[in-house]
Simulated assay, not measured.
Amino acid sequence: MNVLDNWIAAACDELGLSTDDVEAKSVLDVARDVAHNVVRPGAPVTAYLMGIAVGRGADPADVAARLSSLALDWPADGRE
């Protein structure tokens, strides 16, 4: 296991979650897309929003795909 895997396992244990429920690659991919195409501080906020959506029953893969698509289509000048 690497440091990230160790951290995820420890954080899950602390919060009473299963590591089987963690979609780390999807979260990291979305965070990358937001940081590179929208604004860097948007990455952790977007990860938090993903968690809220999934916690409310949304499909993790769908949430990740929608947010990545939104970030990748974001106008370079930051305006819609």
Rank of each mutant, 00 (worst) to 15 (best):
M1N: 06
M1F: 15
N2Y: 06
N2D: 11
N2K: 05
V3M: 07
V3Y: 14
V3G: 03
L4K: 00
D5S: 12
D5Q: 12
N6Y: 13
N6G: 13
N6I: 00
W7G: 01
W7H: 11
W7A: 13
I8W: 06
A9T: 06
A9S: 13
A9Y: 08
A10F: 11
A10Y: 09
A10D: 14
A10G: 15
A11D: 08
A11C: 04
C12W: 01
E14H: 09
E14D: 07
L15F: 14
L15D: 01
G16T: 04
G16Q: 03
G16C: 02
G16P: 05
L17C: 13
L17T: 05
L17M: 12
S18H: 08
S18D: 15
T19R: 09
D20W: 03
D21G: 13
D21L: 08
D21V: 05
V22M: 08
E23M: 06
E23G: 10
E23D: 15
K25A: 15
K25M: 12
V27W: 05
L28D: 06
L28A: 12
D29V: 00
D29P: 02
D29M: 07
V30Q: 01
V30S: 06
V30W: 05
V30E: 03
V30P: 00
A31P: 01
A31Y: 02
R32A: 14
R32V: 03
R32F: 09
D33S: 15
D33N: 07
V34N: 03
V34R: 01
A35R: 02
H36R: 10
H36L: 14
H36A: 10
H36C: 09
N37T: 07
N37V: 07
N37E: 05
N37M: 08
V38R: 07
V38D: 04
V39R: 08
P41V: 09
P41S: 15
P41A: 11
A43Y: 08
A43R: 04
P44E: 06
T46H: 02
A47T: 04
Y48L: 14
M50Y: 05
M50N: 06
G51M: 05
G51C: 11
A53F: 14
A53D: 00
V54C: 12
G55T: 13
R56M: 14
R56D: 15
R56G: 10
R56V: 09
R56S: 11
G57V: 05
G57D: 02
A58C: 13
A58V: 02
D59S: 01
P60K: 03
P60I: 08
A61I: 09
D62T: 10
D62W: 07
V63Q: 00
V63S: 00
A64S: 09
A64D: 14
A64N: 02
A64Y: 04
A65S: 14
A65I: 00
R66A: 13
R66D: 06
R66E: 11
R66H: 10
R66Y: 07
L67Q: 01
L67R: 01
L67A: 08
L67E: 00
S68L: 02
S68Y: 00
S69C: 08
S69I: 07
L70T: 11
A71Y: 11
A71P: 05
L72R: 14
L72P: 01
D73L: 03
D73C: 11
D73K: 12
W74E: 00
W74M: 12
W74Y: 13
W74S: 05
A76R: 09
D77F: 15
D77R: 10
D77Q: 12
G78A: 06
G78L: 14
